[in-house]
């Protein structure tokens, strides 16, 4: 073997090794992204179980994770019905929040006077703690579903309204001029320019509103539930707490948390699908 040949081999080997190391690091990160949270979660659940067993904590104070799972399966018919109720209120509230939030945002950007007149109301509704308003709403609105929905909506609509308003107003000035030069109508400007420009902002608001509508639904049930007419997950938690059925409280809690995570995942996926082609936030950069 000549010297140059060895040199050449060394050179290719060096590049290969570096590339391999890089590839390995990439792979590690990819796997770690999924595996690490799962390992940590398992460890925490295991520690929970050990703490309960070693300290002889009775199940009516803190149940073992296994018992929670058992209760979840055993009480599934009751809990499933409750989950559907909570989910229905949450999703309906989110839908109304989207329609109301985007609708108000569009109206506000079309008319400065309407914005000046009504924006303060939106802010007041947002900053007043919902638990303080909810009892009144349940007094004034007889239909329970409508009352629940109203409470959840008040909590959820504001981030959509404020984000979408911001988005509609942050159109590039040159593009605005361009539309003016080409004689675009108000409607055309809204449809082709402002709404697409506001989409990333709206989706950011939607992600927050998704979580908030669940919170709103749960809070509404708590307030309504004491009246003894609810059957959602929050009502089940209240009911179980009166009966010191702690495992069922945990099981219901698990379902609420799961619902919240699912809503977040769905809205994140929606954001990705809608923005991946063009928006900076969805860009994957090399290197």
């Amino acid at each position: 073997m000549s010297v140059t040949e060895i040199d050449k081999m060394a050179a290719t080997a060096l590049i290969d090794e570096e590339e391999l190391r890089y590839a390995r690091a990439q792979k590690r990160e990819k796997i770690g992204k999924w595996v690490l949270p799962i390992i940590m979660l398992t460890l925490v659940i295991f520690a929970w179980d050990r703490v309960v067993v070693m300290n002889n904590i009775p199940h009516y104070i803190l149940p073992r994770p296994g018992l929670v799972l058992e209760t979840l399966i055993k009480d599934w018919p009751i809990l499933w019905q409750s989950l559907l109720v909570t989910l229905k209120i949450t999703l309906m509230a989110l839908a109304v929040a989207v329609v109301g939030g985007v609708g108000l945002a569009v109206i506000f950007t079309q008319s400065r006077f309407l914005e000046m007149s009504f924006y303060p109301f939106a802010v007041i509704l947002q900053v007043t703690p919902i638990v303080a308003i909810a009892p009144l709403i349940f007094i004034y609105i007889d239909n329970k579903i409508v009352a629940l929905l109203t409470v959840a909506w008040i909590v959820a609509f504001f981030p959509i309204l404020s984000n979408t308003t911001l988005g509609l107003n942050s159109v590039d000035h040159n593009l605005r001029d361009l539309y003016k030069i080409y004689g675009a109508s108000r409607w055309q400007r809204l449809r082709y320019l402002q709404l697409p420009a506001a989409l990333p902002y709206f989706l950011g608001g939607l992600r927050i509103a998704g979580g908030l509508s669940l919170i709103g639904a749960v809070v509404a049930e708590y307030v309504a539930g004491t009246g003894g007419m609810g059957s959602g997950l929050a009502f089940r938690i209240l009911e179980a707490s009166y009966r010191l059925n702690i495992p069922r409280m945990f099981a219901a809690l698990l379902l609420i948390a799961g619902t919240g995570v699912s809503i977040f995942a769905v809205t994140s996926l929606l954001t990705h699908l809608l923005l991946r082609k063009w928006h900076e936030s969805a860009l994957k950069r090399e290197g």
Partner: peptide, 11 residues
């Protein structure tokens, strides 16, 4: 009209 920036709609 052509502006100093390309002024294209990114979407």
């Amino acid at each position: 009209v052509v502006f100093q920036e390309p002024t294209l709609m990114p979407w």
